[in-house]
């Protein structure tokens, strides 16, 4: 009996040692040499594997960073500057500061403003509806409202507002990973600089049709009336194809354009109403002054002419 136990223990121990030896040798022989900095970089990354940096995942990003040895072209939008600083510290290279971005919804055609012209009854997916036709409202540029963007958001930073039928971005949660921007077949979503103290303004319309037909389709469509364009003193607003657009690089957030829009389609974020009011008053004052100046000049010119006239008659 004892013999059986002894032999069992011995043979099993022997087998175990043999297997351990084989595993050890194999792991030595076929070990994959990897830069250990990759692991370190990966550790500080947010591990969301969202692909927002353009790499297929956080590990791939870490690898790319280590290989590149510079942060010029690589940036993790989710981690932001804080994480990139840590990465730079690990690799002993210089950190590159970047302005944080956020996704914005560039359509304000809610149910109220944009009446349905037909009932869509296919698979509930914006992408499929977009391959079929221009949409269930008159506007061929607007949001289709089936929430493909919300589906792809990994950060639960979006939801569909049932009252308006438009997606809403939760500012604190949006990491600017670009997933929704890529998904939207109508290019309604766009990455926008988050702005100083999260303040930013943008035009929430993409309708390139002429004013009258655009307004027929959607009560808040940009008609390309160019009032905002005229009010801007910094050349930050351009009008192309009857559509106004704000250049975030040039915009100084003077807010003077906001209330020139008769449908209030210049959307402001995190800016108190008072400031807009002040800005508008300021603009009106400026305009008044400009008008007066013009008038005075005109008067002066007329007066000058008259004087000249008088002079000639006298002469």
């Amino acid at each position: 009996m004892n013999e059986v136990i002894l032999y069992t223990v011995l043979s099993l121990t022997g087998l175990g040692i043999l297997a351990a030896a084989i595993i050890h040798l194999v792991s030595k022989k076929f070990a994959v040499q990897e830069d250990e900095r990759i692991d370190k970089v990966e550790e500080v990354l947010p591990a969301t594997n969202c692909g927002g940096c353009g790499q297929p995942g956080c590990r791939a990003f870490a690898k790319a960073v280590v290989e590149a040895g510079t942060l010029e072209e690589l940036h993790c939008p989710v981690g932001g500057n804080a994480v990139m600083k840590q990465v730079a510290a690990i690799l002993g290279i210089e950190a590159v500061e970047r302005d944080p971005y956020i996704a914005v919804v560039r359509c304000s055609g809610s149910f109220e403003y944009r009446k349905k012209t037909n009932i869509y009854d296919g698979e509930s997916s914006c992408k499929i509806a977009a391959t079929l036709y221009s949409g269930d409202t008159g506007c061929a540029y607007g949001c289709l409202g089936m929430g493909d963007c919300v589906e792809v958001c990994d950060f639960e930073a979006m939801y569909m507002d049932e009252k308006t039928g438009l997606p809403v971005i939760i500012e604190d949660k949006c990491t600017a990973c670009n997933a929704c921007v890529k998904e939207c077949p109508k290019d309604i979503l766009e990455l926008w600089p988050k702005g100083k103290k999260n303040k930013r303004i943008y035009v929430a319309c993409l309708n390139e049709e002429k004013g009258s037909s655009a307004r027929k389709e959607c009560a808040v469509a940009c008609s390309g009336c160019a009032k905002c364009f005229e009010s801007c003193r910094y050349d930050a607003i351009t009008i192309n194809n009857s559509l106004a657009a704000i250049d975030p690089e040039k915009c100084t957030l003077c807010l003077e354009c906001v209330e020139t829009c008769d449908v209030r389609n210049i959307i402001t974020a995190n800016i108190p109403d008072e400031k807009i009011k002040h800005a508008t008053e300021h603009r009106i004052r400026l305009e008044e002054r400009a008008r007066k100046k013009k008038e005075e000049e005109k008067m002066a010119a007329q007066a000058g002419q008259q004087q000249n006239g008088d002079a000639t008659t006298q002469a």
């Binding site: 296919g122 698979e123 992408k127 499929i128 391959t131």
Partner: peptide
């Protein structure tokens, strides 16, 4: 099932 809907999407 919306088979053709998705096939069309895939082709597009």
């Amino acid at each position: 099932r919306p088979i053709l809907d998705y096939i069309r999407l895939g082709k597009t």
